[in-house]
């Protein structure tokens, strides 16, 4: 049953995404930046989805340390992996935009650096998991590391306020210049990305739980 729901949701997410690409492509060009401005429809939702993933991973890690329930550990890994993929997409789209507008692929300003560091931290989280064999220890240490890693996330979000960055200021709220009728397209894409992330996370979560079940069965077989 859950499988069918996941299939339906996944197809829905992809359908919305394809429809969005079609409609966004037909929007007029932005006056100053031209066609490449439209990358914002993907760049920003990916960032937001990745940040939500980081937040969920933090909550799951804390809950694991409090309850020692391995479901939360599985949730933390699943959501971290998906978040890492979205953050990678965010960094790549940002880099392409930078090449067009700034003329360079990368600038070492606070926002770009902190986002890259964030990516490295969560990649380190996955590597740490690989280095530990014993499941309880792995889950505990990974949860502790995830809490440490999350402290970088507010820095990523507020870096454009705290420092003067090359990265543009947000254009959506508080006097932003984003055209209101484009906001609908933006929100639809946000929904598509979030839905896609949720589906990927659920699939990964089920794999993780199946893996744990397999491991425990294997241990039981060895004990016998």
């Amino acid at each position: 049953m859950i499988n069918k729901i996941l299939y339906v949701l996944g197809i829905a997410a992809l359908a919305i995404l394809v429809w969005n690409i079609y409609t966004i492509a037909r929007l007029p060009e932005e006056t100053r930046q031209g066609e490449v401005f439209k990358i914002i429809f993907f760049h920003v939702p990916m960032a937001i989805t990745a940040m939500i993933c980081a937040a969920v991973s933090l909550v799951a890690s804390v809950l694991f340390l409090l309850t020692r329930n391995f479901k939360f550990d599985a949730l933390a890994v699943a959501v971290t992996e998906v978040g890492l993929a979205f953050l990678a997409g965010n960094l790549i789209t940002g880099s392409i935009w930078g090449r067009e507008i700034w003329g360079i692929w990368w600038a070492w300003d606070a926002r770009l650096t902190s986002a890259l560091v964030c990516w490295l931290l969560y990649a380190g989280y996955l590597m740490l998991r690989r280095a530990i064999e014993e499941p309880t220890q792995r889950a505990t240490f990974a949860a502790v590391f995830s809490i440490f890693a999350f402290i970088d996330v507010p820095i990523v979000i507020f870096s454009i306020k705290w420092w003067r960055t090359q990265h543009p200021q947000p254009v959506f709220w508080a006097g932003g210049s984003f055209p209101p009728d484009w906001t609908t397209h933006f929100l639809w894409n946000m929904l598509a990305m979030a839905l896609l992330g949720a589906v990927m996370m659920s699939v990964r979560l089920r794999q993780e739980e199946a893996q744990r079940e397999l491991d425990s069965l294997r241990r039981m077989a060895h004990a016998l």
Partner: peptide
């Protein structure tokens, strides 16, 4: 120190410590 405690019993200790600490240290180091 905290990561020294965390990595003391795991495989590849000497590699894991700098790999985990340097990214976290980036804001302070910068």
């Amino acid at each position: 120190t905290i990561f020294s405690a965390l990595t003391v019993n795991i495989r590849l200790r000497e590699v894991m410590l700098p790999m985990l600490t340097y990214p976290i240290l980036v804001p302070a180091l910068m």
